[in-house]
Design a protein around this nucleic acid. Structure first.
Lengths: 339, 339
DNA sequence: GAAAACGCTACAATCGATTACATCTTGCGT
DNA sequence: ACGCAAGATGTAATCGATTGTAGCGTTTTC
């Protein structure tokens, strides 16, 4: 670690010269090849220490034709749900020696496009799509399986997808409320025209049908996964003639908004109206009342998404579609039997 | 966009051949050099369209000796505060044509080290340190200003730092509580031995001194920025002899924990005990009661951190230390005058 | 009319690693 | 002793771009 290479970093030739061997031998030695042994290897290692040599990733990547980087395209990093998925992605990637680039699309297709271009220019080896949309620049291309969808399936494109059985989960949520004795169960949807939101709505309808309960279209209000959206939707639900005794919300944020609207209407949760969330983000347990919700295995989904992608990058792609991951009904205090 | 290059992407030589010029000319043309003009440029552009050529980033980076990537080292991406800062970083980076790698340290120095190595290997052009710690591998090195600290200053190292005036902010919070009429104001700290937590504690002490109020050491409880930490700390505060009428917490999570403990003790907020948070994360406004808190300009801090770093990477580094960014007292409902 | 100036393009070196192939040593069997 | 295989190392091509310098053809200048 002397300062003999001030300014420019030592390169492999410097190590080779010092060790009295060729760069080929240094490269092999560093790669752990069994061809380099004994005294030679020691001399090289000493020279590496002496010079403070570290490999130049740009050169290595060009030669190897792989960046060992992936890009995670996320609608909003600050959304606690996606942040948690990202932790899973980062963790799995880190273990496999991959780095993770973040692409915050902020629902702007141009930003998504600009990020997606990384895949075409070789900036990254693969991409995780978490916003349910294939960027336009990738449309006609053969991106031979360097794409994996996480959370939201990508419509119109056969992509490996990591998800839970949304329909079954929504069904379980609805049945739980019915099991508590509720008969007038409302639903606040997610963003309209999103696959996941549709599936949850369908699951809700399924369950009501199974239970022999009629579906009242006035009991279905459109939300957008946000607190404000939940608040407005709940206000509408309350204003409609006969009000529900329980509400199944398609996100925890929506549930929080709903609870606020319920309180604003002079009612209480779960006293007057039970509220069920979805996702089990961190606030869910901390909120007052703690939210009963469906937990999605967020970190696991991220990790699994990475693994699927890594398999395809390595060419060991097994199946196109992996098993749905398990969800879990988490019972806390925001739902109770009706009065 | 024909399929003539199935398998291997077209490279610059392909474009050159098709346009009937040399690669040098193609490169210059694509770079927008004024040397290439008229018909030649048009032929090249046509050839680019024809082949569907896009530059190979790996080769470009090797040649240019810059990755146009930075790494953001964060203790926890899923922490809403840091997630929000990251949004700012990503936005500014994106505008400047930089990509952002995330490094989740999870408080593990080895993970931080592994990520930091990216800087030594040329994997990234610079690094944003958000965890207040210089990774060991960077210790003896001359990383000539490719490092910027954000949020938490890095002790023992003169680094450009993006921060707010923590001491003044804590003072403002404490004075606000005093202004409401409180005399017994407690404080729950952040992680002990962290610079930021120390500064806030000092600001709290300053303010009490200014106000002529005695500092009661029993009114200072150690937290760790988490909900659970706030809960335990508040429980201790309640158990101690004379209980406070107001608590200044060093994070919003801490405040939420404190409120839970207050409720668990049969008391209410702000009725019996006012609670003040810090940071103004998204839940702060949604919680019940909505949290009065100090807002840190999170996105701005992230964006500013990136700009400082970009300046130093470009060699246009202006000052080592930028002005502290403005904080803001956000008054909501968790603080009220004492009974 | 020769020389200088200029505009455009090509050649070839370069960035720093990896690796197929060639070469040189050794050791072993017979 | 000789031949041959196996082991260790070196040589040089390669990944795909950028860019300094040289070259060439045309126009300007005196």
């Amino acid at each position: 670690m002397t300062d003999r290479f001030v300014g420019s970093r030592p390169k492999m030739t410097d190590v080779a010269r010092l060790a009295g061997v060729s760069v080929a031998t240094v490269s092999r030695s560093l790669a752990g090849s069994p061809l380099v042994t004994g005294e030679t290897r020691e001399r090289i290692e000493a020279a590496v220490r002496e010079t403070g040599y570290v490999v130049n990733h740009m050169a290595q990547r060009l030669r190897l034709q792989e960046s060992r980087q992936i890009l995670a395209l996320v609608p909003d990093i600050a959304n606690p749900f996606f942040a948690e998925v990202l932790v899973g992605v980062e963790g799995a990637a880190h273990e496999a020696g991959f780095n993770v680039l973040i692409g915050n699309t902020a629902d702007d297709p141009r930003r998504a496009d600009l990020h997606a271009r990384q895949l075409l220019t070789g900036g990254v080896d693969g991409m995780l799509l978490m916003n349910g949309r294939l960027p336009d620049v990738l449309l006609g291309k053969a991106h031979d399986g360097r794409l994996v969808a996480v959370v939201e399936p990508v419509p119109g494109k056969k992509l490996p997808t990591v998800e839970i059985d949304q329909r079954a989960a929504a069904g379980a949520a609805t049945e739980y409320l019915a099991g508590l004795g509720h008969r007038r169960i409302a639903h606040i949807t997610g963003v309209v025209a999103s696959t996941v939101s549709d599936l949850r709505l369908r699951g809700y309808r399924d369950a009501l049908a199974r239970l022999g309960l009629a579906v009242d279209e006035h009991m279905i209000a459109a939300g957008d996964y946000t607190i404000a959206g939940g608040e407005h939707a709940m206000a509408r639900l309350l204003a409609s003639g006969e009000r529900p005794t329980a509400v199944f919300c398609s996100s925890d944020e929506t549930a929080i908004g709903a609870i606020k609207a319920i309180r604003a209407g002079g009612l209480s949760t779960p006293g007057d109206i039970s509220v069920m969330g979805f996702d089990d983000i961190q606030i869910a347990a901390a909120y007052d009342p703690p939210l009963t919700t469906i937990r999605q295995p967020k970190r696991l989904m991220g990790a699994e998404g990475f693994r699927l992608l890594a398999d395809r990058i390595a060419g060991t792609a097994s199946s196109v579609r992996s098993e749905p991951l398990p969800f879990e009904l988490v019972i806390r205090a925001s739902c109770a039997p009706p009065k």
